[in-house]
């Protein structure tokens, strides 16, 4: 994996920027287009780019598959857990208003923030998991068949 010097240098610059953009999309989703789902895809894209340039094994060292599996679950649990908290506070599932009874709209903010984070985590992990799964499979066709 020594060739592609330009790719390696450029991607090293780009990957942090892509990840930062993902978080911008995530937290700016209330004000402009964007949200957890888009951000998750972009975040996964950053890791996928890393895998494409430096190899799948390197990417798996950076973000191990076991983390990815746990991330998938945590994402869903964060979303569902927000609902469970509102349940425990005595209201309906996912009624965020109950989080701050004095200012229901603040509760809505916190709720939306939490669930969007859940979506981010779930989507980014799942996208990576799918990429790992396909990437690790050995092709029966060699590159020369192209």
């Amino acid at each position: 994996m020594t060739p592609h010097v330009i790719l390696r240098v450029v991607s090293k610059l780009l990957i942090p920027l892509i990840a930062m953009f993902a978080f911008y999309v995530q937290f700016h989703g209330d004000y402009g287009p964007g949200g957890g789902f888009q951000a998750g895809v972009i975040l996964a894209a950053a890791v996928i780019l890393y895998a494409l340039i430096f190899g799948l094994d390197e990417a798996k060292k950076a973000i191990p598959p076991s983390w990815v599996r746990i991330g998938m679950t945590l994402g869903v649990l964060l979303y569902g857990g927000t609902g469970v908290v509102t349940w425990l506070l005595g209201s309906e599932f996912l009624s965020y208003g109950v989080l701050t009874p004095d200012h229901p709209s603040h509760g809505q903010h916190y709720g939306i923030l939490a669930v969007e984070l859940g979506v981010l985590l779930a989507v980014a992990s799942v996208m990576l998991a799918i990429f790992y799964a396909f990437g690790s499979r050995q092709p029966e066709l060699s590159d020369e068949d192209w």
Binding site: R69, M72, L77, G81
Partner: peptide, 10 residues
């Protein structure tokens, strides 16, 4: 079952 399904998976 949705939440526990997610937990079961790990």
């Amino acid at each position: 079952p949705l939440l526990m399904g997610a937990i079961c998976a790990i």
